[in-house]
């Protein structure tokens, strides 16, 4: 079994609001799984169902082959987007308390905490109250309490918010390290840059439905627009004329200071990249030629806009 967590046909309704509509996702073991979607799409509801904070109206969740049950709580670590600590409580005491709630023994928790505090260089904060900490410091403490019990499944909702770039890298490195040690990570964020950087699987949820999922490579491949980028020098008019049939010039820049022009061309009909090269090779001087791989950001925006436009169109009554 290569799937750690499988959610099947999950639906959840709050009063008149359909939060999740028949959503299924499968999270491979030891993957970093990006759970993406615009605000209010239903990500948090899905995460809460996985955390057993709330239950689905219909659908099933299996964890490591078993139906999800309270005994799995200690095997899951959750860092919510909206997070905080008891302000008046001391850092060490609070971390111990949260670790014990996850089922750790006090002594073991204390030992592990000391190690993590050392690693994150916040050992001196053990006896301080949380209200005396800066936001970044508190976030570090929060991250430690999430991963301390070495959960098999780690759910991180916007884990980098509140961190400066240095600490962001520190946490990123820790996340990768945890994955190497065997953890599976669900990573929910709006920051597509970090998704590109660390995720290997993603699922995109929009308006309570899953609209896209798969491995990062696969998703990108499926969403390629068949656009190629050409850097060239030469006559733009003859370049444009050469593309008369079988190609679409999407975009062309002005000459840069070296006289190089950048053009994006979509292949139409069954044209292959070689056909494009053949067409332009005698017209201009080619400096570079490569495929345009869409960024996660592009895919996200494209998919979400497509769906939302379709939904709006369906709602407006058409003329007879």
């Amino acid at each position: 079994m290569n799937t750690l967590l499988q959610a099947e046909n999950i639906s959840k309704r709050y009063g008149n609001h359909q939060a999740l509509d028949d959503v299924s996702i499968a999270i491979p073991k030891q993957s970093i799984f990006g759970l993406l979607g615009p605000n209010g799409a239903g990500k948090t509801t899905l995460i809460r169902i996985i955390n057993q904070i709330t239950g689905p109206d219909s659908g099933t969740v299996t964890f490591d082959g078993q139906t999800l049950s309270p005994e799995h709580i200690s095997r899951i670590g959750y860092l919510p987007e909206e997070r905080g600590l008891y302000k008046k409580m001391k850092v060490g005491e609070q971390a111990l308390y949260l670790a014990q709630l996850k089922g750790m023994h006090r002594r073991e928790a204390r030992k592990k905490l000391k190690e993590w505090f050392e690693k994150f260089e916040i050992g001196a904060w053990w006896g301080k109250k949380v209200e005396e900490l800066s936001k970044g410091m508190a976030q570090k403490v929060q991250f430690i309490t999430t991963v301390l019990h070495e959960p098999e499944l780690l759910i991180l909702d916007e884990p980098f918010s509140g961190f400066d770039p240095i600490n962001t890298n520190l946490v990123k490195a820790e996340i990768r390290l945890l994955r190497e040690k065997g953890a599976t990570i669900i990573f929910s964020t709006h920051n597509m840059g970090s998704v590109e950087e660390i995720c290997d699987h993603i699922a995109l949820i929009n308006r309570s439905q899953k609209i896209l999922d798969g491995s990062m490579k696969q998703v990108k491949k499926e969403n390629k627009d068949n656009i190629w980028e050409v850097l060239f020098t030469g006559n733009t008019l003859s370049f444009t004329n050469a593309l008369w049939t079988g190609f679409e010039l999407v975009k062309m820049s002005d000459e840069n200071k070296d006289g190089v022009i950048e053009a994006k061309i979509r292949l139409l009909r069954n044209n292959q990249p070689n056909d494009l090269l053949r067409t332009i090779v005698n017209v201009v001087n080619i400096h570079a030629f490569n495929e345009v791989i869409p960024s996660m950001n592009d895919i996200f925006i494209k998919k979400v806009t497509e769906i939302n436009e379709a939904a709006t169109a369906a709602q407006t009554p058409s003329q007879p």
């Binding site: 955390n51 057993q52 904070i53 309270p70 709580i73 899951i76 959750y78 860092l79 919510p80 909206e82 997070r83 905080g84 600590l85 008891y86 302000k87 949260l98 709630l101 996850k102 929060q142 309490t145 999430t146």
Partner: peptide, 18 residues
Amino acid sequence: IEEKTNRIVEVIISSVRP
């Protein structure tokens, strides 16, 4: 109210039932 405004409540109820 303190737990709710502190936003620690979601962390805790991922460990224990509300």
